[in-house]
Design a protein around this nucleic acid. Structure first.
Length: 722
DNA sequence: ATTCAACGCTTTTTT
DNA sequence: AGCGTTGAAT
């Protein structure tokens, strides 16, 4: 085995070698904290700690998988047994065992934001709160905030003061009851319920405390109170806890994260050793100097400054643009420049503050034939038709899940609406059985039409079969395909026959494939595991370094990543810093976000802003962001230093040549990104993505602006030569 | 129960 | 501008 201390600087070494007891590692951006974390885990295993006794919390599932791989490279396949996951995934794993202790079924459903909102709306109506006067989203945010602070409805009521608090309390109480009745937990419950169990049930606590010998937490500055309590409970009583983080990179306070967790770690754990990592291995001196100048304007941060021995590097460019389209061309120009310097597409990232900004950038990149991949934004699993199909699976797995059942019953339309479901629910309540089981008794339910009875019974049989077969080990792909067939979803979309319907059906078929892929993986854990993965998948989990494409994403999603070339866009007042972040604290968080963006760049950094930008219906005038003024003049490229407005780099018309076939190991099917095509039915379109090994192409059509996935080999479609 | 049209709201960031 | 929700009509 290679020496675990190879190539580490003294503080990194110390962190890896730290013995038992609490450890705080203040790790600046690019200071090699991932290295320290993985080496430390490898060393623990090397010293005899069983891998399954190590809990390593990372910010994304992808980071967890990477950590496991890296450790496996050092200590071998035993690393498979390490618990490396996000807080949410770890809690689900615990809850699959312990949920009954908290009064939930083992197969509890996980409600996402959409399910939550549905249920909250219903609760508001029941509480006589008009969803038009009070935004359900606002209530949801209040509830989420309460849960992140470990306040249940009763505790929240204690803290309530204003009238709007009281309204929120009433809805919160009813919502909690609703979740319980559905055998469901929302995202926040996953953490809160686990914490409550660990703190309130000594048997449960003992089980897990003896299980984990070491707890390591990455991105500790972004933990919220529940997460703090979880860590504390799981690490007790030995307190072998290692927290790694950087107070300058706290960007999730709006989600309940509290930087005090990291600032006060040594107070929470008085025996803690604290180690600071300040040598940066990522960026040039210029980038670090600019980033430091920006972030040191914040008050209340731990004083520190990153340094590097890698030299100054090139200056930072600021490009002023007329509008968002010129900005797009400027971005393309910078990409072209980076490629000419030897970067590959995947070395380049474009950041923005809000997801909505990606639209204009995408338009330009498509037109110029620059391959890109957007991280975040609307997700596959959140598409309505996909959620319909998932609803069947969830209802099959958890017969108490009324929200999912109701959704399944409504898609496709089969003459069963809220009225019929209410009768079904009443019957289930009277017989004291889960609503899913009541389907089998449809014949006995009064007030239903014969057709409705038949429909309910049929869905009931389908769900029962799904459950039986998935338990019986039928491949997931076949189970999902059967739902697609027997639910009538496939037929209804086929009959509809519109472009729209065809696209939706493609998505559903894609989901069948996804289920097959999941079923083929090593950690496949049946239907429950599949649904769990779907629910807990983060945008950042989908970042694909090997995609051979420029990465477009929000700065939030860029946390933890690095790129040779970073282009940060939309540096405008009101957008970044965002107009909703007007309090001093919020402004400091915006500045930290800016800092995070700056420090993702290894070599080349460009900042752009537009003088006007389309919003809502009209067009807003924009002023350059105050953050631009916080960048020291002597780190900026000369042409910008005088404060003059510079023209964006012009983009040559042969920009399409930028995507060099062969340079990336990108499949070379008949179609490539940016190709103009003509489809027999849909007319003209532009290829905006090539999926899989090239058999699937994503095309946006000019006729109706819709995106469709098409089979490259089969679709009646040809490329227009250009 | 389903379909269609008018209305109003959105855009902060996400597990 | 676009989308989703709501309300009225069938």
């Amino acid at each position: 085995m290679p020496d675990l201390l190879d190539g580490l600087n003294p503080p990194q070494r110390e962190a890896v070698l730290h013995g038992p007891g609490p450890l705080l590692v203040l790790a600046g951006a690019g200071s090699g904290k991932t290295r320290v974390l993985t080496r430390r885990v490898a060393r623990l295993i090397d010293q005899g700690v069983p891998p399954h006794a190590i809990l390593a919390i990372t910010f994304t599932n992808k980071a967890a998988a990477e950590m496991r791989d890296r450790i496996a490279a050092m200590v071998g396949p035993a690393a498979r047994d390490i618990w490396a996951s996000t807080f949410h995934s770890a809690c689900v794993r615990i809850l699959r065992r312990e949920a009954p202790e908290a009064g939930y079924p083992r197969d509890f459903s996980i409600f996402d934001a959409d399910d939550q909102l549905r249920l909250i709306r219903r609760c508001m109506v029941e509480e006589d709160v008009d969803p038009k006067r009070v935004a359900p989203r606002a209530i949801q945010a209040r509830i989420s905030d309460a849960k992140s602070r470990l306040l249940d409805a009763d505790a929240f009521e204690q803290a309530a003061g204003s009238f709007s608090d009281e309204v929120a309390v009433r809805v919160y109480r009813r919502y909690s009851d609703g979740l319980r009745a559905n055998g469901a937990m929302d995202f926040d419950d996953l953490l809160m319920v686990t914490a409550q169990l660990l703190e309130g049930d000594s048997a449960v606590a003992a089980r897990w405390q003896s299980r984990f010998a070491h707890v390591l937490v990455d991105e500790y500055q972004d933990t919220n109170p529940v997460q703090f309590r979880l860590v504390r409970a799981l690490a007790a009583p030995q307190d072998n806890v290692m927290a790694v983080g950087d107070d300058d990179q706290g960007i999730y306070s709006w989600r309940g994260a509290d930087v005090r967790n990291i600032l006060e770690f040594t107070r929470d754990y008085p025996d803690a050793r604290a180690i600071a990592l300040e040598q940066n291995y990522r960026s040039t001196g210029t980038i670090l100097r600019a980033a430091h100048a920006v972030v040191s304007r914040n008050a209340g941060r731990l004083p520190k400054e990153l340094w590097t021995d890698r030299g100054e590097g090139e200056p930072i460019s600021v490009i002023a643009c007329r509008d968002e389209y010129e900005e797009g061309r400027a971005v393309a120009g910078q990409i072209e420049r980076a490629l000419s310097r030897g970067d590959s597409l995947s070395d380049i990232a474009v950041f923005y503050r809000t997801n909505a900004q990606s639209r204009a950038l995408e338009d330009t990149l498509i037109r110029l034939g620059i391959g890109y991949a957007v991280v975040g934004g609307p997700r596959f699993y959140e598409r309505a038709e996909v959620r319909d199909l998932l609803a069947y699976l969830r209802a099959a797995l958890n017969p108490a899940d009324r929200v999912s059942l109701e959704r399944a019953l409504g898609a496709p339309r089969r003459g069963v609406g809220p009225g019929a479901v209410t009768k079904l629910a009443a019957h289930a309540a009277a017989r004291d059985i889960p609503i899913g089981h009541a389907l089998a008794e449809a014949q006995m339910i009064p007030g239903l039409q014969a057709a409705q009875r038949a429909a309910l019974a049929e869905v009931g049989e389908l769900l029962a079969d799904v459950r039986l077969r998935s338990e019986g080990g039928m491949p997931l792909e076949r189970v999902v395909d059967e739902v697609l067939a027997r639910s009538g979803l496939r037929e209804s979309y086929e009959r509809e026959g519109t472009f729209e319907a065809r696209g939706r059906l493609e998505n559903l078929e894609e989901m069948v494939r996804a289920a097959g892929e999941y079923g083929a993986t090593a950690e496949a854990a049946g239907l429950a595991g599949f649904l769990e993965g779907v629910a807990l998948q983060a945008d950042a989990d989908l970042v694909d370094e090997a995609s051979g494409a420029v990465t477009l994403m929000t700065i939030h999603n860029a946390k933890g990543l690095e790129f040779e070339t970073v282009i940060m866009t939309g540096l405008e007042e009101g957008l970044f810093p965002h107009s909703r972040s007007d309090s001093p604290d919020a402004l400091e968080e915006e500045r930290r976000l800016f800092y995070v963006g700056l420090t993702r760049a290894k070599r080349t950094l460009t900042l752009t802003h537009a003088g006007s930008r389309a919003t809502y219906g009209g067009r807003d005038h924009r002023l350059p962001s105050r953050f631009l003024g916080e960048i020291p003049m002597d780190t900026l490229a000369p042409s910008q230093a005088g404060g003059r407005v510079s023209r964006p780099v012009s983009v040559s018309s042969r920009a399409a040549a930028i995507v060099r076939p062969g340079q990336e190991r990108r499949p070379r099917p008949g179609y490539a990104m940016g190709d103009e095509v003509v489809h027999a039915t849909f007319g003209e379109g532009i290829v905006i993505g090539v999926e899989g090994t090239g058999e699937l192409v994503r095309v946006r059509f000019a006729s109706d602006g819709a995106e469709r996935r098409l089979m490259a080999g089969a679709a009646p479609m040809t490329k227009v030569g250009h």
